[in-house]
C-alpha cells in the first residue's frame, strides 16, 4: 500500500512569541516540532503499513531549516520524507499550499491513501487536507476517528459532531484523522539515531512541475492586511477576598438573574 502523510513543522505554540510590530509569528522564539495533530496521521500510516505492508512517504512544505525536525517523521516509521522548499512557495495561503502539496503527491506516482492531521496548531484552519483532495479529485474523509482496510476498501468512522457515519470508500482517497484515532508511539533511541543518518529529499517548484502563478503570494487569494491585538472584553470585576461574603453575593446574583 502506498501511503502518503502530509505534515508540517510548526513552532511550539505554547512558547512562541508574536511580533506585533511586524505582524508575524517570531519563529526564532520557540523550538520547532512536528505539528502535534500530524503525529496521529503518522501513527495511523504506520499501523496501516504494519497490517498491509507498503511504503510511507511524508510530504511537507517549509523553509529549509525544518529539515532536521522533519527527520522525526522517519524515526516514527516514515520511509521517506520530502520537503518542498523554494522561495517561490513563500507567503502561501491554504489554496497555494494545497496546490503545491497536490503537485508533489502527483509527482510521487500512484498512491492508495493520503493521511493528514485535523489541522495545524499554528495556522489552525484545517483547510489544507480538503483542498488537496479537491486538487487531486479524490474522495475526502474528514474527522476520521477509526480507519481500516479490507477487501480493497477503506472503512472509516467519520465524526460530524453528534452524527457518526461508518463509511466505505475506495482508494485513492484522502483522510484527515482526529486525535482520538490512536495514541502515537514515541520513537525509540535506535530509530532516532538511524533517522539522523537519513536524507530528507528536497523538491522545488520546478521539481513538482508547478504552475508558478499558483504558488506563494501570487497564488494566494487571501491576505492578512491588518493585525489587531484584542483588548475588548475586560470587565469591572467585583473581587471578594473573603469566600463567605463572595458566595453570599453570588447567591444573590443567581437569584436576581433567575438562574436558581
Amino acid at each position: 500500500m502506498n501511503i502518503i502523510v502530509l505534515t508540517k513543522v510548526v513552532p511550539d505554540i505554547e512558547r512562541v512569541k508574536f511580533d506585533a510590530v511586524r505582524g508575524v509569528v517570531d519563529r526564532s522564539s520557540a523550538p520547532q516540532e512536528i505539528n502535534p495533530f500530524d503525529l496521529n496521521a503518522i501513527e495511523e500510516a504506520v499501523r496501516l503499513k504494519e497490517r498491509h505492508g507498503g511504503r510511507i512517504t511524508a510530504i511537507s512544505m517549509g523553509p529549509s531549516d525544518v529539515e532536521q525536525t522533519l527527520k522525526d517523521t522517519i524515526a516514527r516509521g516514515v520511509d521517506e520524507a520530502i520537503l518542498l522548499t523554494d522561495k517561490k512557495f513563500a507567503g502561501s495561503d491554504t489554496l497555494a499550499t494545497s496546490y503545491a502539496l497536490s503537485q508533489a503527491i502527483k509527482s510521487t506516482g500512484d498512491f492508495d491513501i493520503v493521511i493528514c492531521g485535523e489541522k495545524t496548531v499554528d495556522g489552525d484552519t484545517g483547510q489544507v487536507g480538503g483542498e488537496v483532495s479537491e486538487w487531486l479529485g479524490i474522495p475526502y474523509l474528514p474527522y476520521t476517528s477509526k480507519l481500516n482496510y479490507e477487501d480493497g476498501k477503506f472503512k472509516a468512522r467519520v465524526e460530524l459532531e453528534n452524527i457518526i457515519y461508518e463509511v466505505e470508500a475506495s482508494p485513492p482517497l484522502l483522510v484527515s484523522v482526529t486525535k482520538d484515532i490512536n495514541t502515537p508511539r514515541l520513537p525509540g533511541f535506535r530509530e532516532k539515531l538511524n533517522a539522523r543518518k537519513t536524507q530528507v529529499k528536497k523538491m522545488d517548484a520546478k521539481g513538482i512541475e508547478a504552475d508558478e502563478g499558483r504558488l506563494g503570494f501570487n497564488g494566494s487569494p487571501t491576505w492578512v492586511y491588518k493585525i489587531e491585538v484584542p483588548e475588548e472584553g475586560q470587565r469591572d470585576c467585583k473581587i471578594y477576598k473573603d469566600p463567605e461574603s463572595g458566595l453570599k453575593e453570588i447567591m444573590i446574583m443567581l437569584e436576581s438573574r433567575d438562574l436558581i
Binding site: 475586560q234 470587565r235 470585576c237 473581587i239 471578594y240 477576598k241 469566600p243 463572595g246
Partner: peptide
C-alpha cells in the same frame, strides 16, 4: 479576574 464580573480569591 480582569474578564470576570465577580471573583473570589481563594
Amino acid at each position: 479576574f480582569r474578564y470576570a464580573d465577580m471573583g473570589i480569591i481563594g
